[in-house]
Amino acid sequence: MTSLIVSGCSSKPATKKQENQDLNYPTRQIELVVPFAAGGGVDLAARTVAEYLSKEWGQPIVVTNKTGGGGIIGAQYALKDSKPDGYTVLVNNNSSTSMHEAGTSNPTLTIEDNKFISRIATGSIAYAVQTDAEWNNFEEFSKWVKANPEKLTWASVGPAGISAFAVAQWLESIGVDYHKTKMISSEGASDSAAKVAGGHVVLGVHTVGEFAPLVDSGKIKLLAVQSPERNPLYPDIPTTKEQGFEGLTVKWWTGLSFAPGTPDEIVEKWDKAIEKMQKDEEFIKQLEKVKLEPGYLNSEDFTSEVQTETDIFTKLAEETGIRK
Rank of each mutant, 00 (worst) to 15 (best):
A14D: 14
A14P: 10
K16E: 14
K17P: 07
Q18D: 11
D22A: 15
N24T: 13
T27H: 06
R28P: 00
V34L: 02
P35F: 02
A38I: 05
A38H: 06
G41L: 03
D43K: 06
R47C: 09
V49N: 06
Y52E: 00
L53D: 02
V62E: 11
T64D: 09
G68L: 01
I73V: 12
S82A: 15
P84M: 04
L90C: 08
N94Y: 11
S95L: 06
S96C: 15
S96F: 03
S96A: 14
H100P: 08
E101L: 02
T108E: 11
L109T: 06
R119W: 04
I120Y: 07
S124Q: 10
S124R: 12
S124W: 08
W135K: 02
F141C: 09
S142A: 14
N148Q: 06
W154D: 07
G158D: 05
G161I: 11
S163R: 15
A164V: 13
L171R: 03
L171W: 00
V176T: 08
A189M: 05
A189E: 09
A194Y: 11
G198N: 15
L203T: 13
H206V: 12
T207P: 14
V208P: 03
V208N: 00
E210Y: 05
V215H: 01
S227W: 05
T239K: 04
T240W: 03
E246M: 13
E246S: 10
T249Q: 08
T249L: 06
V250S: 12
W253A: 08
G255H: 03
F258D: 06
P260I: 05
P263H: 07
D264C: 01
I274M: 15
E282Q: 14
K285D: 04
Q286Y: 08
L292Q: 09
N298F: 02
E300L: 10
E300V: 13
S304F: 11
F313K: 13
T314W: 05
T320H: 05
R323L: 04
